[in-house]
Design a binder for these strands. Structure first.
Lengths: 194, 194
DNA sequence: GTCTATAGCAGGATAGAC
DNA sequence: GTCTATCCTGCTATAGAC
């Protein structure tokens, strides 16, 4: 249930976002959405064509938020290493998992080009954005010349996404933090580099 | 459908393993299992108490296989770096995702201590096993002294698990491979180390 | 061991009144 | 715009015959 300052359509989208995050697409039913949104059956089908349509609206909003959150962390550092650190170390609700990455495990999301597109585009954008930052660091001599920006970017995003898996398996964020620290330690400029 | 050389109970377990991998726990119904196994309703409930019981048997077998597969790769190298490389570079059905890691995104698996336990124990075992290998490499002077075994182990497993996410999002194994190469490049002994 | 029958409930959606 | 009624199918399981 949400406060009445939100329109019914807004509440439906927010409810869907919550449920997709927690239970995935397959595990989320229209009835559950309606209950969480405090909206009736008729209301939902008035505003949205059905479950896929509503899910698409929810996924689009979630991916937009993810981009904004990532972009915000990139402003937090001067050097490439600082900006990547800021991204990796930013506060996360680790045990809830990634609301975007989670969707990739859903067979019906993957099977639908429309539903998969925002997920794909967002993770792709993130990798390219990170690769650009790595390239800048490379240009500044911050990293070993053997570093390949696309590969480091993929490793950074994968460490985060995989960190969620380890954390949820163990019921503790420790493994997430350990993975991030491990990657950052490998990426750290050698002590003799200045 | 499976060949008749397998017992009904075996076919039920194998069918459940396939469906859990592809659709997760929430997305897998007893009826789907029965159809895939070529078994009737009564058969399933004769051999297993219900969906959770059958899932537990399937998960246990899948986690056992995962351990054996990982252990096999660790025999493939002499140095720590070689053994970690072998683990990371081993052939995988990347677009299908990890049959164990996938389960962590399932709310009903996480909510059940019994179902989560084998998943947790297996990923935990893998991290400890890798940490031991990193420690050996550290003892041999293979890695920088700043390397922390537990952290590198977590980063290795997370890169694999997250690589699956990136691959499935994009519909291509490329991002998985890139992440793995990125991590390995950072872990590579410096060229002047010999 | 396997089969069919049955049950109660939820999923996903449509229809039409208000 | 929202509500209630209704629909058909599938989920998860139990019962009891064979």
């Amino acid at each position: 249930m949400y406060s009445t300052v939100m329109s019914t359509s807004e509440r439906l989208i927010e409810a869907t976002r919550e449920l997709l995050w927690e239970r995935g697409y397959v595990g989320t039913s229209p009835k559950a959405i309606q209950q969480q949104a405090g909206a009736g059956q008729g209301s939902m089908y008035h505003h949205f064509a059905g479950k896929p349509d509503l899910a698409l609206a929810a996924i689009r909003r979630t991916t937009e938020e993810m981009r904004a959150a990532a972009e915000a962390t990139f402003a937090d550092g001067r050097t490439a290493h600082e900006r990547i650190s800021a991204y990796l170390l930013r506060e996360r609700d680790v045990l809830r998992g990634c609301p975007v990455g989670r969707l990739t495990m859903d067979p019906e999301i993957i099977a639908s080009a429309e539903l998969r597109a925002p997920v794909d585009e967002t993770l792709d954008w993130l990798r390219h954005r990170l690769a650009g930052i790595v390239q800048e660091g490379l240009d500044q001599g911050e990293f070993a010349p053997s570093v390949v920006p696309d590969e480091i970017a993929a490793a950074v995003v994968a460490t985060v996404q995989g960190g969620y898996v380890l954390a949820r398996a163990s019921g503790s964020p420790d493994a997430f933090d350990a993975g991030v620290r491990g990657l950052l330690s490998l990426l750290a400029p050698p002590p003799n580099s200045h």
